[in-house]
Design a protein around this nucleic acid. Sequence first.
DNA 1: AAGATCTACAACCATACGGTTTCAGATTAG
DNA 2: CTAATCTGAAACCGTATGGTTGTAGATCTT
Lengths: 114, 114
Amino acid sequence: MVVDLHPAQADLVFHALADATRRDILTVALAGEQSVSALARRYPISLPAVQKHVTVLERAGLVTKHRHGREQLVRVEIDTLDRARRLLDELEAVWRERVGRIDAILSTNEGAPK
Amino acid sequence: MVVDLHPAQADLVFHALADATRRDILTVALAGEQSVSALARRYPISLPAVQKHVTVLERAGLVTKHRHGREQLVRVEIDTLDRARRLLDELEAVWRERVGRIDAILSTNEGAPK
DNA sequence: AAGATCTACAACCATACGGTTTCAGATTAG
DNA sequence: CTAATCTGAAACCGTATGGTTGTAGATCTT
């Protein structure tokens, strides 16, 4: 299976996830697809600060905004999240495989000249 | 199953992964557990820059350093990586579950007064 | 039409980040 | 011992980040 997440976007996705407020926004948004101001009321920071967090999530492709009247509803794009998880999954699989190979190499090199 | 990765460390882990050079260092380090200076030769940046990247990975618990003579060998702690993947796995599972609930709610609210 | 609310955008500030150069301490090689 | 190498730490710089306040445009409510 191919990872359809270019490195540059992986940077954006992991950076977006590297903040507890943004991770919480993702969780809350999925629980109700609330507006930006409704999200802002849940945190002790200003509305523009929350707007910026949403923008970071949006640039990473983790959410999209959909205008509904005067409100802007935040919708989680779970597919991007899934791709991020699969990327981590693949990386870890490759890494585990290499660990296996290293173990094999080390066991045959015991006492060999350095 | 419990996620043994506190939010503060999740910040560190995701931040550490949000850089292509650091992800590559992880891959390379697993392929050979090389020294810091050996790693530095692979990139077009200075040695102290690579040292800082390794420090970021170290603070996140993704690698440990082990002195071997005058060299400092970088070892990947794959368990931390595994915990990060499981964290993402759990978050996504919770989120998917909520999506399922939302779908159910929406399907019973079809045509209901807004 | 008037007022309240949701949002966006700009300016600003402090701090952190990623990079550099420089200097100093250990350790191995000759 | 001397010289070369690996590492670490400090000082510095430009830019990005996360936060604020303030202003202004749409949109809903009355």
